[in-house]
Simulated scan of single mutants.
Amino acid sequence: MATTVTARAGDTLDELIWRTRALGPADLPAVIALNPGIADAGPRLAAGTIVTVPPAPATPATPTRDLIQLWD
């Protein structure tokens, strides 16, 4: 389910979606599609801009690695 988030002064779209929903660069096309005309606003969003974002991923945004223990 898509939700809305509000930009703070000076936010870029990628900063906003990372901070609020843990979405990364691969999610930007979906966010832009949900918000027609948002790219025309420029690189920085105005404070109070309402942005519709897709749901956060079920998996973490950063890959995880198995722990390797060298000594017992």
Rank of each mutant, 00 (worst) to 15 (best):
D40E: 14
G37K: 03
T3Q: 12
T52Q: 05
M1V: 14
T3P: 03
T4V: 14
T3G: 14
T12C: 00
V53H: 02
P57R: 13
W71H: 15
E15N: 10
A61M: 07
A9M: 07
T52A: 08
W18P: 03
P55H: 09
L13D: 01
A2L: 07
W71A: 11
G37F: 07
L23Y: 01
P57W: 10
V5E: 02
A7T: 01
P55K: 05
L70Y: 11
A41V: 02
A61Y: 04
A33Y: 00
G24R: 15
A56H: 00
P43I: 11
I38V: 15
N35R: 09
Q69P: 02
T3C: 13
I50V: 12
I32L: 12
R8F: 12
A7F: 03
R21G: 02
A26C: 09
R65Y: 01
M1C: 11
A41H: 12
A22V: 09
T6H: 00
W71Y: 14
A30R: 07
A56M: 03
E15H: 09
L16T: 07
T49G: 05
I68S: 08
V53P: 04
N35V: 09
A46Q: 08
A58K: 13
W18R: 15
G48D: 08
V53F: 02
D11T: 01
E15L: 13
L23A: 00
W71N: 15
I68W: 12
P60H: 08
A30I: 05
P29S: 09
A2D: 15
A56K: 10
D14F: 14
T64M: 07
